[in-house]
Design a binder for these strands. Structure first.
Lengths: 343, 343
DNA sequence: TTGTATGCGTTATCAT
DNA sequence: ATGATAACGCATACAA
């Protein structure tokens, strides 16, 4: 690591002259400028970004924390965010909380300790007490929630209209003639999960279908969770005719269970998943899914942190909602048993 | 952001005393210690990690740069790396080069500017000239290559025995009776791609099968690339009976082409892919794949950087190779046309 | 036009 | 046991 002082010493000039060259101050003589520039090149000088951030109080990098980088939904989301950030001269670094509050907290404090200028967070599930400590953890660092925000979120969040999305999916299944519709939710202390559940419940109610508690399962956004709840659901004496998986991994787990038990999908059971991803159509069967505009969510969140950084109104609250789309494919069909009334 | 000085001022003590408490210096009186500690808690003090790294010349975080975070192979790899790093008290941040040298270089210089203590790099494709500039870019920062290393890599790398792996796959296809075996490689200026191609060629040669240039395609690790090369191969008058996709995304692209053209797999065409991933069995057909131990690769790379940091021998060269495994599933079968000689 | 001094928030050495 | 001071590498206001 060559420093600005070393360069200056080599040239026999003051280090502030070197600094002036680097920062394009106008009043450096042309001769001096080119001498310094040459030395800079020769020594392969790169400014020490740590020292720079300390002095300038900015790093021009944004931190993104997601629960699971193995989930294609977050891959797309982060790509959308990074594309936007790069286009406006920012860098992005990402960390994975692994659905673990401890780890999330660790990265949060690390990021908020001036490593990043702002934070985009898709939170892991958390208790109310944990959530309450969030402000203390980020200590005023610009933060926006994306996709998943805590139940009691004040600040800024960008997500999808989850109750509408879940309602659409449920509605579609009911339209196909389903009445025994199971749901596997994410952790209910996260807003998107509770909203999806709400959309499901209300749509059922509107159609006069009673809520059957044996058909609602709280999962945890892992494939395993989908697999186990799916297996149990399939093993039920009075098996559901359709299941709604409130997350990509959960849904893939359900699909694994369905295939393992050799239950015909969609003939014997319909499956709708959340999030969608690039390879949905390559699965067997191709999955009907609620598509979230993942990249757009990421970009919107990125835009939002940047805005939040410029307007440090601590109490600003803003929720941006993006539309979803039901991608109808091969995993849904009218139920087999009763006479279907397909829409 | 409360600073050490502010705490000191509030307490009317010297800031170096506060620092002494924070850093557990022994010679602080119990009374003073508890007074300071209370103030620290009350103010929700967190050390400024930037200032800390500047002073200590270490950040206890490792940077990982991958070409594509949407590739499940890298998701697993990074998880393996992070698990290991966390277990020994390090953090990990990741950046995505998007197969773009410019972006990779940017993150590389950023990371090497003291933001991270070490770097794990799965490089994007690059020209020899670009590779030659790498040492200047990282400026002595501890670096290890993982999965993908440049053709002329001196340093340390951890990967899989790619020639062996490609050879195994080719061998298996030949054993099934295939002779017209196509290959879609990654960028050939990256070692793993060229090695896989080498393994393919040599195995063909050993069995006296001439290399047909129309069957070898250089792809670029995108699904699109797999899709287009796959489509062309399927459109050939003398169509191959098997194809070897040298990357997960490439292989999924080929599968998309196969399904779109409604070619029966494996009856009319066999497909083997590289990398494997969690949902291979949910695809239709379930894909036969060369499994790389992705998480182990990540962990080994993490271990290697840490070691490299302790032993700053600039010229150390070390290649650790992990074994692969051929996961035989439903996408491979003897060729239809001629009389198969299944092994 | 160039050089000197100061501070960003730490940690660490040395006086007191 | 506590406090003053320097240093990490940089940027900048101000003096020369």
């Amino acid at each position: 690591m060559t420093t600005i002082r070393e360069i200056a010493k080599m040239l026999g000039v003051s280090f502030s002259t070197v600094s002036a060259v680097i920062n394009n101050r106008q009043y450096v003589s042309a001769a001096m400028r080119s001498r310094v520039e040459k030395a800079l090149r020769d020594a392969n000088y790169q400014p020490n970004s740590i020292a720079r951030s300390l002095r300038l109080r900015e790093s021009r990098t944004i931190g993104l924390i997601v629960p699971n980088l193995g989930d294609p939904f977050y891959s797309s989301l982060m790509r959308g965010a990074e594309d936007y950030l790069c286009s406006v001269g920012y860098r992005m670094i990402v960390a994975e909380s692994r659905e673990d509050w401890k780890r999330q907290q660790d990265y949060l404090t690390s990021f908020s300790g001036m490593i990043t200028d702002g934070i985009i967070l898709a939170t892991c599930g958390a208790t109310d007490e944990q959530i309450a400590t969030l402000p203390d953890i980020v200590r005023g660092a610009p933060l926006v929630y994306v996709d998943r925000c805590p139940l009691e979120s004040k600040g800024i969040s960008v997500s999808v209209d989850n109750v509408q999305a879940a309602s659409d999916a449920t509605q579609y299944l009911i339209g196909l003639g389903h009445e025994r519709i199971a749901i596997i939710t994410g952790p209910l202390n996260v807003l998107n999960a509770s909203e999806r559940f709400k959309g499901y419940k209300s749509t059922l109610r509107v159609h006069g279908i009673p809520l059957d508690r044996t058909l609602v399962r709280a999962g945890d956004h892992t494939e395993d969770s989908g697999y186990w709840h799916g297996s149990e659901l399939l093993g039920l004496a009075n098996r559901p005719t359709a299941v709604l998986g409130c997350g990509l991994l959960i849904t893939l787990g359900v699909l694994a269970a369905i295939r393992e038990k050799r239950v015909a999908c969609p003939q014997e059971i319909s499956l709708i998943g959340f999030d969608d991803f690039a390879w949905s159509t390559l699965l067997s069967p191709a999955l009907t899914m609620v598509r979230q505009p993942a990249a757009e969510l990421g970009a919107a969140a990125a835009k939002a942190v940047l805005k939040r950084m410029r307007e440090p109104d601590q109490n600003m609250v803003d929720k941006v909602l993006l539309p979803t789309q039901l991608m109808i494919r091969e995993s849904t069909a009218p139920p087999a048993q009763r006479n279907p009334t397909p829409k």
